[in-house]
Amino acid sequence: MTVFGCRTCVAALTVHVSRVALPVHADQKYGNGPGSLAPALEPGTFAVDPLPSGSPWRPWAELEAGEAEALGWYVPRLGVSAGPTGQVLLAPGDIRGAVIDPALVGDTACCGLNGGEPNMVCESCGTPVAIRIDDCGLRQAIWLEPLATRVIEDGPGPHPVLDWADLIEQRPGIPPSEPSGGWHPLWPAAIGSALAHLLATSGGKPLVIPDRQVAGVFQPALDRLVGPVGAGPKHTLVLAGPGLPDDDGDFALIPEHPQTGEHWPVAPSVKPVPLAWNAWRYLAFHRDPKPAGRSIPLPPEALPALLPGYRFEPDGRIFLKVLARLPEVRQPWLRAIYERGRPYSYSFYIF
């Protein structure tokens, strides 16, 4: 069982938790409320951010040759953290022995708590140990400070690691539609990240997407970024993963294991594009049953829509962040796509 505690007094600060992969929507901002978004992690789990976090912040213009790449960035950002790595993400209900200190709550938030510096302190010794976030449009979260906390008990935790077959059975994915009829916030985040990987992997080649659900979330953005498929040579994007037939495309959307971060392996001739499990699982296996009593199958265009009717927009902030961390973004054509987001302060992207 993994338990985190205060580095100063060794008091326990969390319940027992199991490690999972850091989700692409960990620091998502979606809409403007009212209210915050659901936590990125389920109770009893934690994830570790491999990137530097917090102060000191370095303006891009002040970074010397090679410094940005060493910090994980390949194109300009407004500012780059040179702080410690290893910030730990928790669901808010898993924190113990820490309280919000009003003196540490900044004035940059709107309707709740936000900020890049700790606003929670250890009850035992008063050391600032964590950041509580619950502002409008943000994921509810606890971020433990890596220099103020440490592991005081280590073990597998309450959630055993599932194999791919068990994931298929126990993790059915998240439907794209919310009760209101709009898109679930996870989907713009998952597709925004996968779209960045797809562009970097494809080299801008025109892509044909046979699956109508996959085409529904990827094709409009691809058409606007690299142009519609023309009459020349074409490449195919398919779904690949556990429970599906062998890969038969040039590029394959493959699942990321939500606990280990492992990617489903594909044949050497197929170029993989990682997609968050909850979206991949739904796209791969959610199909409406055939109408009862009909002997002649309906054509795909006559079947009911499985995706919300509202126009889909990938999460532009996550798209730009993921793209900025891929070396391929330095190619001129992809750098030009990235630069479209510069006027919007990396918080919005017009697809």
Rank of each mutant, 00 (worst) to 15 (best):
T108Y: 08
R139M: 02
Q170A: 13
G181R: 12
R224L: 11
H184P: 04
A109Y: 09
L144Q: 06
G227Q: 00
C111E: 11
G182S: 15
E169G: 03
A190Y: 10
P158A: 05
C125I: 02
L162H: 15
I209R: 01
W183I: 03
S124K: 13
H235Q: 13
W164N: 07
H159W: 15
S202H: 03
W143D: 00
L207F: 06
L113P: 00
E123Q: 13
E123W: 00
D135R: 15
L138D: 10
C136F: 04
I168N: 06
L225W: 10
W187A: 04
D166R: 15
V229C: 07
G173L: 04
W183E: 00
K205S: 11
G137R: 13
Q170V: 12
L186T: 11
I152P: 08
I131F: 02
W164Q: 10
I168M: 12
P158R: 11
D223H: 02
T201N: 08
K234T: 13
L147D: 09
G116A: 09
P160M: 09
I209Y: 04
C122A: 02
N119E: 06
G204Q: 00
D211N: 13
R139Y: 07
L225G: 01
P220R: 01
D135M: 09
K234W: 05
W187D: 00
C111Q: 12
A196R: 07
K234Q: 15
P176Q: 06
A189I: 07
G137F: 03
G157E: 03
D135E: 05
P176H: 08
F218H: 13
W183N: 07
P176D: 05
T108V: 10
A215E: 10
L195Q: 12
L162W: 05
V229T: 11
I191Y: 06
E153S: 04
T201S: 14
V217N: 07
V161D: 04
S180W: 09
P158S: 03
E117L: 14
P156D: 11
P172Q: 10
T201L: 02
A190D: 14
P158N: 02
W187K: 11
V214I: 12
P220L: 03
G182T: 15
P179Y: 08
A196L: 10
